[in-house]
Computed example of a mutant assay.
Amino acid sequence: MKKIRPPHVAGYFYPADPIKLKTDIQKMLEAAKTDASFNKIVGIVSPHAGYMYSGQTAAYAYNMLKGKNYKTAIVISPSHAEYFPGISVYDGDAYETPLGVVEIDEEKANKLVEGGKLIFRGIQGHRREHALEVQIPFLQSVLSDFKIVPVVMGDQSRTFVDELANKLAEIIDDKTLIVASSDLSHFYDARTADILDSIVAKRINEFDYEQLQRDLDSHKCEACGGGPIVTMLKAAALNNYNKAKVLKRTDSGDVTGDKSEVVGYLSAVVYD
């Protein structure tokens, strides 16, 4: 492997020490155990703040993947650090975290960009993006023998969402998982955040991605990874998946105790 994307936020968003990282994730997974189970999961929504704030919420979704035999995880992230008019699929060989190296699924990555103008192989969006990186140690903790397709949406408007959803629908199968990386509203008081975030949760639970897109467009709700969420739901629908369930919804104030200005998080599962 010649081109490996190194960890950028290890030691900041999550522990850089592999033993502590592994231990912390296992503790979060243990604390997030529920009686819920889903046989055919095609995708999850997972938040992407520092593990201290949103890792416990993410663990509810990742617990649902234990024991499942995915060969490819397509991780879709917003772009926080740079804007570009397109969707960037990492053009290297692998992503690295303190838990090791995860190879890129070259076949699926190339099929995703085949014949399109909006999706391309590149480095754009991947240099410093935390929202994609923080998902990988969780994947490494619950799956084995898998590859990834790291996707960063430089533009989350409807045209790009539709293009990516249609292309994903062509390449996913029962051995493929989609991870939509998203936080919810930012820096409102907890009561206001709850009103906004409950709309996102409602649309996910209703599997109503069209209305979610409209609500995001009209600012009735907020999600920094709204594009990845809608994309995943639409791609799932095109493959005859039609159910989704929010597993956990929290905000940063649940950890800090400060409810005057919070960031919202949720984890969810998309299944048949």
Rank of each mutant, 00 (worst) to 15 (best):
T231Y: 07
P15I: 03
A59N: 01
G100R: 01
K22D: 10
G264L: 00
L29P: 04
A109G: 12
T256Q: 13
H80W: 09
R214E: 14
K71I: 04
E114R: 05
D208E: 07
I44K: 07
V102N: 09
A94N: 14
S260M: 09
R191V: 07
I41K: 02
K243D: 14
K2S: 12
I119F: 01
F187Q: 09
G226K: 04
Y70V: 05
A49V: 06
L196I: 00
A223L: 03
I199L: 08
F207S: 14
V179Y: 01
L233F: 12
P85C: 13
A31N: 15
A193R: 00
S88G: 09
I204M: 08
K234A: 12
T159D: 13
E222L: 04
K243W: 08
V75I: 15
L238E: 10
A193E: 04
K71Y: 05
A223W: 02
S141V: 02
K108A: 12
A244W: 06
D35C: 15
E210H: 14
N110T: 14
G125S: 06
H48Y: 04
H48M: 09
M64S: 13
G253A: 03
Q56R: 15
Q56H: 15
F138C: 08
L139P: 00
G55C: 10
A131L: 01
G264T: 08
F207I: 11
G225A: 06
C221R: 01
Y12C: 12
V9Q: 13
D194Y: 07
D173S: 11
Y90T: 10
K259G: 11
Y12M: 15
M64F: 01
I172V: 14
Y62G: 10
M1T: 11
A223K: 00
